[in-house]
């Protein structure tokens, strides 16, 4: 009997199982993620402007632009402008809302700087990051180890992939953790 098969001390059952678990979690994480990114036009995730369910039922849906915009503009004035494309010149005279839409980035920073919800959102992001990276890279390394038949190359490629995943995780976690700290 060839040594190729069997009696390997190394079981892959755990990784395989984890892949299912992360996959399953990703369903929910991704749904939430997309919801927040694309459909949550309210600022429900920002405590300044929480609306009660009664209000929501009554059709009071604070527009993203009203409550959030105000907060964003406020911050811009206070700090001399933030964001990738400062929309308001630094020397703008008054704390007047400019009528300019806030960028997603701004909203994001607010959310992650929120005194009440930041911990929750950061936790969510970290978990999401970890799961997506593990899930994705586990899949990629599976593919690598299937197709690369040379032992040395295979081990090399797989290590490289996991190293890359680790780097991404560090960068990602760092950005999540520091985001919004200076709000």
């Amino acid at each position: 009997m060839s040594k190729k098969y069997g009696h390997s001390a190394k079981s892959s059952a755990f990784q395989w199982f984890t892949h299912r678990i992360t996959g399953t979690f990703l369903i929910f994480l991704l749904i939430t993620h997309f919801w927040v990114q694309h459909y949550d036009r309210t600022t429900a995730s920002i405590s300044h402007s929480v609306i009660t369910s009664a209000e929501a039922d009554a059709g009071v849906i604070p527009e993203y632009s009203d409550a959030a915009n105000e907060a964003v503009q406020q911050r811009r004035l206070n700090q001399g402008g933030i964001g990738r494309n400062p929309v308001v010149p630094a020397d703008a005279s008054a704390a007047q809302p400019t009528g300019q839409e806030a960028t997603p980035y701004d909203v994001l920073m607010l959310r992650l700087g929120d005194p009440v919800y930041a911990v929750l959102w950061k936790g969510f992001n970290l978990l999401f990051l970890l799961f997506a990276l593990h899930h994705g890279f586990f899949g990629v390394t599976n593919i690598l180890s299937d197709y690369i038949r040379n032992d040395m190359l295979r081990v090399g490629a797989v290590s490289l992939a996991w190293t890359f995943a680790l780097v991404l995780f560090i960068v990602g976690s760092y950005s999540v953790i520091v985001a919004g700290l200076n709000v």
Partner: peptide
């Protein structure tokens, strides 16, 4: 199970 639960085994079934 130990045999099929090896790197060349079961888990290459996608």
């Amino acid at each position: 199970l130990k045999i099929v639960d090896s790197p060349n085994g079961l888990w290459k079934c996608y």
